[in-house]
Design a protein around this nucleic acid. Structure first.
Lengths: 217, 217
DNA sequence: TAAATAAATTAGATAGCCCTAATTTAATTC
DNA sequence: GAATTAAATTAGGGCTATCTAATTTATTTA
């Protein structure tokens, strides 16, 4: 069996590789997990011994098939619980993450599947992240940023790239959620900010940072 | 903050005092928790230092007001999650306990209250145990055993005293659940077994052990 | 009450996961 | 390429929660 801590390492490795990091180094992991690099080195050895990752100083850490399966399972549970917390318990999307960080480690054979069924087999979590299905298949992921949309075009929010509470609260304030339509009215060359129209009424200006934190399609 | 382990000790102490044990000794706790008595002694010191319990070699361990509050909170969450698992995820009542053992430790300010609301403010868990409300008030508890019912009388199942999987599965097999009506047809003096009728049709004989494991009213 | 038994406690270890402070190794920069 | 800087690793601890093996203290029992 694997411990809660091991699961968190696997998840972090998964997350970093999803981010497109080609080489997952102890330092990168330490940074990601807010932990000391020396501790990471210990755990890397442990996970290697258990054949959950392969580690090579040149190539960094990579999940093995087995490690990937565990990581995906945690991610699946995390995102399902997020849906539960938001839809059933009425939590706001800036809070669900931290609770799901705990819930994702609850262990029981059928739990994920039963939860999945109860929630109606959702494909995306409240932040727009795809939920792996029981087979470990993942719906395609959004990759166009709001900042890439041309002036005059309208797009629809598919996911958030930044899931920090401050950003999510700001979105809440602007009434932006997954599915919200946004029309790009103008791009200001000076600071790459954008004038946008949110769902027929609201017009506002958002920063470069903002436009690069929202996925759209 | 208190650790998961501390919570489990507090819960065990609570459970033993609910069972009517007047003196909660290290040995009793060790037995209850399937743990070594020496470990218990250590933790008793720790919990005393934190003022969550009072310990006295003569009187044994007692929860302080603060310790009781934590224990009640865990019990509340445990029982609410059991209701969730049974009613929403369709788990059977012999399984919900072990999963709730994990879920009860999930920490978030409003979680218990939101779950409570979502479930419609249930008063009893699937085993008939009372669920403390947000104020820590507990509905009255069943205390009449099936074995105490006189011949000819009919009673109704309110709770199970024994929550082991084998017993619960046996009840399932007999179609006995909370609320089921049972009529006592005969008591056999030889071994204190009982002939009973379950809800108008089924007649069967149950052992002394069985009759002492079901609460009725 | 003395002896035997049981319970409580202490002492000393261990495993898991983390840390700081070297040290070694690799990558940059001058 | 030598010097500097950064990253990886090792060495040595710390803390929590557990254990086993004494030892001390109570409680029974003969």
């Amino acid at each position: 069996m694997h411990s809660l801590t091991e699961e968190n390492y696997l998840k972090a490795i998964y997350r970093l590789s999803q981010k497109g990091l080609d080489k997952i180094t102890p330092t990168a992991l330490a940074e990601e997990m807010s932990i000391n690099a020396a501790s990471v080195v210990d755990m890397i050895r442990k996970l290697s011994d258990k054949k959950l990752i392969n580690y090579d100083k040149q190539k960094g850490a990579k999940l093995t098939a087995q490690g990937n399966k565990i990581a995906l399972d945690i991610v699946r549970k995390h995102r399902l619980w997020e849906v539960f917390l938001l839809e059933k318990l009425g939590y706001s999307w800036d809070v669900v993450h931290e609770i799901a960080e705990q819930l994702e480690h609850i262990k029981h054979e059928e739990l994920a599947d039963r939860l999945d069924k109860f929630l109606g087999y959702p494909e995306y979590d409240p932040h727009g992240d795809p939920i792996p299905n029981a087979k470990g298949e993942i719906p395609s992921i959004a990759n166009t940023l709001l900042s890439e949309i041309e002036v005059g075009k309208t797009c629809q929010v598919t996911a958030v790239k930044d899931t920090s509470a401050v950003f999510l609260q700001y979105l809440e304030q602007l009434s932006i959620k997954i599915g919200t339509k946004i029309k790009v009215l103008e791009k200001i060359p000076f600071d790459a900010s954008m004038a946008v129209q949110i769902e027929k009424d609201v017009k506002t200006t958002v920063s470069k940072k903002f436009a690069e934190s929202l996925f759209v399609s």
